[in-house]
């Protein structure tokens, strides 16, 4: 097709919301078959609303109309350049304008390593909508800034999973979120973590609870660690309480691999509920506790009649 009889130019097709928009429409009479005679009256429409421009003669017999919209507060609109022709309004040029904000800084980035497939799932808060097409990507790199890998969240989601093959295990990785649109880029805080530090463990399973040594107020518990954690140094916590107790008693610093623990000071003939949880014995404050194990109850034996 030939060059059109009108062309519309705008300062920028993407502007900050509320800022000014300038546009100009140039009509080349000799290129507009049918417009040769008579006065060319240029008119503007913002979507379907008439807006006033200022028309003047341009170079080489062209007619030029300039338009300024002081505060453009549509996130998306079409600016139409029109001319009168045979009593009809003819649309002869158009420009699409989008307005919004630079991307908000992604906040509260946190990650969890799923031990079943060793995928690292990270989530974050996207912040206020920028109203503009924004590409959001989770980036991660081994600490010596080798190649940057990561993952891309699905449209409208603010979480994604870095597959095992893109991860460096047992070593610090730098992980952050980067959001980019036409008005700028924003990055979240950078997390420096060893993916293993954020491994999400399944809880241990309390196998047996017995009054051992016999005739004492002591109890011995035995547990199995979650599948897939056999090679890990785990620190665990035990909590127990009798139904009428208001708070749990907490026993910390239990070595996971020990497999058993003994605790004394229990009342006789009383039912107690026990739960246990573990996490990797790593320095990182980010290490996630597993959920508490399913509750196991145990009733201590009656006190033996003394002085028999």
């Amino acid at each position: 097709g030939t060059l059109g009889c009108a062309s519309v130019t705008v300062g920028s097709p993407i502007v900050p919301l509320g800022s000014a928009v300038t546009a100009s429409c140039t009509v080349q009479r000799e290129l507009c078959r049918g417009l040769e005679q008579g006065k060319v009256r240029i008119r503007w429409m913002l979507d379907n609303k008439l807006v006033a421009g200022s028309q003047r003669q341009g170079p080489g017999g062209t007619e030029v109309s300039n338009l300024t919209l002081p505060r453009f507060n549509h996130t998306q609109a079409r600016l139409w350049c029109c001319v009168e022709w045979n009593g009809t309004k003819q649309r002869v040029g158009m420009a699409e304008i989008r307005a919004g904000y630079p991307p908000a800084k992604p906040l509260n980035l946190s990650c969890v390593l799923n031990l079943s497939d060793y995928g690292l799932t990270c989530q974050w808060e996207q912040g206020t909508d920028s109203h503009l097409p924004t590409s959001v990507v989770l980036k991660c790199t081994g600490s010596r800034a080798q190649e940057v890998t990561g993952c891309t969240p699905r449209e409208g989601h603010s979480h994604c999973t870095v597959p095992r093959r893109l991860l460096q295990l047992y070593r610090q990785m730098e992980i952050w979120v980067s959001a980019t649109n036409a008005l700028g880029t924003a990055e979240s805080e950078h997390l420096c973590i060893d993916p293993m530090d954020v491994a999400k463990l399944d809880p241990p399973t309390l196998q047996s609870i017995q009054s051992i040594p016999f005739q004492t107020d002591c109890i011995t518990l035995a547990w199995d660690l979650a599948w897939g954690t056999e090679h890990m140094e785990l620190q665990c916590e035990l909590r127990y309480r009798a139904p009428e107790d208001s708070a749990w008693a907490l026993v910390t610093g239990i070595s996971g691999r020990a497999g058993t623990a003994q605790r004394c000071g229990f009342l006789f003939g009383t039912q107690y509920h026990f739960q246990m949880r573990c996490r990797r014995n790593s320095a990182s404050a980010l290490a996630h506790w597993s959920e508490w194990s399913p509750c196991r109850s145990y009733t201590t034996h009656e006190k033996a009649p003394t002085g028999k």
Partner: peptide, 18 residues
């Protein structure tokens, strides 16, 4: 989506399109 609805508003431009 494109706000192009009425043929009689686009007759002038059509002359430039094959």
């Amino acid at each position: 989506t494109l706000q192009l609805c009425k043929e009689d508003e686009l007759l002038l431009v059509r002359q430039h399109l094959d």
